[in-house]
Nucleic acid binder design. Structure first.
Lengths: 358, 358
DNA sequence: CTGTTAGCGCCTTCAT
DNA sequence: ATGAAGGCGCTAACAG
């Protein structure tokens, strides 16, 4: 069998084009950079022909090397598995598209070590800036970024000791919105469920705002449950503890008989984000069966695709806009804007579904 | 207010390091490339010190330009919104990590034009290869890729006229597996629901295998419903037509009374992928209420995160492995392997849930 | 062992 | 209007 030699035919370079067009490299370069007015129509035609014939495409790496800018930006993602992330990404891509940027997407998959490695890699590729949706990360990991280093903008979470633009949900307003909704619907025993939040600013803010909102109400009773999704065993125990507490409270408050159907405790669950909500929903389904939605109220920040199906109430984040704005901020920084660090807090939207309406 | 001048301090170059260490660039280069045995311990120490002092990091672009390879590969994705895609991506990242490759992720967001643009961009950045999970794409769009161009491997779908390695689900086996399961459970009126499939090979194969499996059975009755998710109105009409047909069939086969609860028609829905399954589930919920899972059987290829919650039976694809293998194939091609185009078909796993068990 | 030299593909003065 | 020459940061012969 005589297959063709298959030597990948080296791509044409600017020199090849110049030779093919019978001219110098300079003219080709000018053509590529749109300085068309400076070229005689005749030369220009020859260049166009040569480019087409050779299927020439300028080498971005080389251009970048020369110019000192390669139009690459880094996009560091903590968890692509979270629908929030994918949605933000859509906004990022759209903005990059119009601004002529190319996002280098790095997925840390919830591993701090990956995050460090990618950040270093991005730096190595000389990206002009980074958008960071970080894990609970030490400021030192981000050393090369922000302040003295390459421009950075934070998404959803801020990082202690790192001054940089940040864009995300207005967490305080969102948590208040959710809490008030639950109170308005008559729920007075609310559990705020959240992943470990020492490291993640947005979780902290949501939890704090929840407690503040409950306190402002006075009469009602609020609890915070930490749910460590990374450790199934621990998560299981947390949920069991919650079940127990709810049952006990229910029996106290009503008639002494747990689960009295005539006057159930007005318990509601408030999930700090979609992954938590999913875990809760699975737990509730296992405990109460198919009709769990009617037995216990569930509200979540984030609006994952299955929310409508499960009938849970949500607070939808303006994810697309978050991504879009992040790129705009970054672009401004890249272009040299020098203002002090800015925060862009966008409002969430309450979407009421069966789970929390009577 | 006197903010610091904030001039981004130009990153150190190899020349800076050489000067700082009082030596030539070559030695630095040698150090960087691990030719440590050729360096006197003394020089080596000086170099290390200089690098640390200057916080030097070699410029990948420049290295790539010189070496002719930049360790970049392109990853072209049709739809990040589909959980399948994200899962494949995880496998891709893991493999890239061990092989020292850096994936440039491009998300076409279901737009053919985007796909074209990104492919061209990748080419421009001189990626060493591409992994393509394409839209229904013309071979011409992929011109720069495969065969004569840069190495490529296809994921999930093949493209007419393009010879390249491909890795994905064993669609025939998977569709058979699902169909047999439904038949075994006593469903004899099965609707295979799929997005428009002229352009997408995997959808074609699934549909064909479904029909073959039904035919082999003989007695049973199979239908194919095309559901165009991109056009909500059209999708709505398709679903209405399906409802109508099912109702009619049910009344025929049983007692003449539609929806006779004593002996309902043994209807089952077989979704070709997760997006279709979600649309179906929403429709069923709207039509039959919360308990829809017990009224109609739903089985889907793909195993999205909400499957467990909804209790639908699924065929889980080995997504991680698909991604991993794709990179391995690509890596081999990059390293010059010359075999004819290979296909890697991986088996799916049936996960039975409430929706299809009695 | 170590430094010098010559490019990789492109852009950018600076002449012509 | 066009081309020649130099250099971006790095590597790879080729000397010493």
């Amino acid at each position: 069998m005589s297959t063709t030699p298959q030597t990948t035919p080296r791509r044409a370079t600017i020199t090849d084009v110049a030779r093919e067009a019978g001219t110098g490299k300079t003219s080709i370069s000018r053509y590529l950079n749109g300085e068309l007015s400076v070229l005689s129509p005749e030369l220009r035609a020859r260049i166009e022909a040569a480019i087409a014939r050779l299927d020439y495409q300028p080498n971005q790496m080389a251009r970048g090397l020369k110019r000192g800018r390669n139009r690459l930006i880094g996009m560091l993602l903590a968890d692509l598995t979270n629908p929030y992330t994918v949605e933000v990404l859509q906004g990022v891509e759209a903005a990059c598209h119009v601004l002529g940027l190319m996002p280098l997407i790095c997925h840390a998959a919830n591993e701090v070590e990956m995050e460090r490695r990618y950040l270093q890699l991005l730096t190595t590729y000389r990206v002009e800036g980074v958008i960071v949706n970080a894990l609970g990360v030490r400021e030192e990991t981000l050393r090369p970024v922000g302040g003295g280093g390459i421009p950075a903008v934070l998404v959803d979470r801020s990082v202690d000791g790192l001054v940089a633009d940040m864009v995300g949900l207005d967490n305080r307003a969102a948590a208040e919105l959710g809490t008030r909704h639950l109170l308005d619907q008559g729920f007075d025993d609310i559990w705020f469920v959240v992943q470990p939040f020492e490291q993640v600013s947005s979780r902290q803010l949501r939890e704090l705002a929840f407690r503040d909102a409950m306190r402002a109400q006075g009469a009602a009773c609020g609890h915070t449950l930490v749910l460590n999704l990374a450790d199934p065993g621990e998560a299981e125990r947390s949920l069991a503890a919650m079940d127990h507490a709810i049952d006990a409270a229910g029996s106290d408050r009503v008639t002494g008989k747990a689960g009295n159907p005539g006057n159930p405790a007005r318990v509601a669950l408030f999930a700090a984000n979609a992954p938590v909500a999913l875990r809760l929903a699975l737990h509730l389904k296992a405990r109460y069966g198919a009709g769990w939605q009617t037995r216990v109220a569930l509200l979540s920040i984030d609006d994952p695709e299955w929310a409508e199906l499960a009938g849970i109430t949500t607070i939808r984040q303006p994810t697309y806009e978050i991504g879009y704005r992040a790129v705009e901020f970054l672009h401004e920084r890249i272009e040299g804007v020098q203002t002090t660090a800015r925060d862009c807090l966008l409002p969430g939207e309450l979407i009421v579904r069966a789970s929390t309406s009577r």
